Simulated scan of single mutants.
Amino acid sequence: MKTSYTVNELNDILKGEIIGHTTQLIEGPEQLKKAKNNQITFIGSVKYVKLWATSEACAAVVTDNITVEPGENRAIIKVKNADLAMAKILELFNPPSPVFDEDLHPTAVIHDTVKLGNGCIVGANCYIGKNVVLGNNVVLYPNVCVFDDTIIGDNTVVWSGTVIRERCIIGSHCIFHTNVSIGADGFGYRPSDDGRGLMKIPQIGNVIIGDHVEIGANSCVDRAKFSATIIGDGCKIDNLVQIAHNSIMGRSCIMAGHSGLAGSVTLGDGVIIGGSASIKDHTTIHSGATVGAGSGVVGDVAAGATVLGYPAQDSRDMLKQWVALRRLTKK
């Protein structure tokens, strides 16, 4: 693995425009304030330009509508989008994943009926139940449980502590971080006939997850009461997110940390849910809509709309209300 690059070598990858020059070899990326003279940084907003003067970084990736002078023995790489360009640089310097001494650890419990694809790696103390199918190059880190009749697609990586319950269907190229729960019972109870307790409603469905889905640590996707809880291709889910039974997420949705979907919520394609937002059961949020952080959605949201507040409403109306309230408190 290459450990250092010239600014020209990095630009060959980014396809940007170099302004200035540096002879310093670049050994990694870092944020503006912490960067040393052997590191590259990035500037994606004009509010960070002032930090460039005091930064020790020898180079910076800069969005092309931002004006900044490189300085002595320093270089700027102008690109269309600094964030996306920096992602490519981060990938270059990304340390390798933990290495396994053996593909199938002897402490793993793998049922005789399991079908393992080519190149699968199963870590210590994993459990794989009856009739599970793992595609090619699936990686299960230590202490992962995959229960009966589950299918996992090619190149999916499952980190330690994750539990995938029975009958779930997982796509290819997914990443589940530590302690993810897939397919636990949905939260279904009704008052008992005698009124003295709660009766558990059986949850007989499953979870279906598409391709290229990433789920953060300690997040939960509950199985459906019947049919399936579905997460579409390309969805990205942060840490500590709750997705309840029978919810359906379209393609490429984003859910930030501490947000949650109640039962039978439907998200269209490209929906963005901000941190700590909560979505009421049986609600539909249509494609391209955005829910602001901390909001509570109690009704359907139109395609492309941005809602904010509790209860959530059009973000412009809510901001006007907040301004009006602030003025009242100052009188």
Results as ranks from 00 to 15, higher is better:
Tyr141Thr: 00
Pro142Leu: 08
Asn143Ile: 09
Val146Ser: 08
Val146Phe: 05
Val146Ile: 14
Asp148Tyr: 04
Ile151Val: 14
Thr156His: 01
Thr156Val: 05
Val158Glu: 00
Val158Gly: 00
Val158Lys: 00
Trp159Val: 08
Ser160Asn: 06
Ser160Gln: 04
Gly161Val: 12
Gly171Asp: 04
Gly171Ile: 05
His173Cys: 12
Cys174Arg: 07
Cys174Val: 08
His177Pro: 08
Thr178Glu: 13
Thr178Arg: 14
Thr178Val: 14
Asn179Trp: 10
Ile182Ser: 02
Ile182Glu: 00
Gly186Trp: 01
Phe187Gly: 01
Phe187Gln: 03
Gly188Phe: 07
Tyr189Ala: 03
Tyr189Arg: 02
Arg190Met: 10
Arg190Tyr: 11
Ser192Trp: 07
Ser192Arg: 03
Asp194Lys: 05
Arg196Lys: 15
Arg196Cys: 13
Gly197Tyr: 15
Lys200Cys: 08
Ile201Ala: 00
Pro202Trp: 01
Pro202Glu: 06
Gln203Ile: 11
Gln203Asp: 06
Ile204Gly: 03
Gly205Gln: 03
Asn206Gly: 08
Ile208Leu: 09
Ile208Asn: 06
Ile209Asp: 10
Ile209Asn: 13
Ile209Pro: 09
Ile215His: 03
Gly216Pro: 11
Gly216Trp: 08
Asn218Leu: 12
Val221Asp: 11
Arg223Cys: 05
Arg223His: 04
Arg223Leu: 03
Ala224Pro: 02
Ala224Trp: 04
Phe226Arg: 11
Asp233Gly: 14
Gly234Cys: 11
Asp238Leu: 13
Asp238His: 12
Asn239Asp: 14
Asn239Glu: 14
Asn239Cys: 11
Leu240Gln: 12
Val241Cys: 02
Ile243Asp: 00
Asn246Trp: 06
Ser247Thr: 07
Ile248Asn: 08
Met249Pro: 04
Met249Arg: 09
Gly250Lys: 08
Ser252Ala: 13
Ser252Asp: 15
Ile254Arg: 07
Met255Leu: 09
Met255Arg: 02
Ser259His: 08
Gly260Asn: 10
Leu261Asp: 02
Leu261Cys: 04
Ala262Tyr: 01
Ala262Trp: 00
Ala262Phe: 03
Ser264Cys: 02
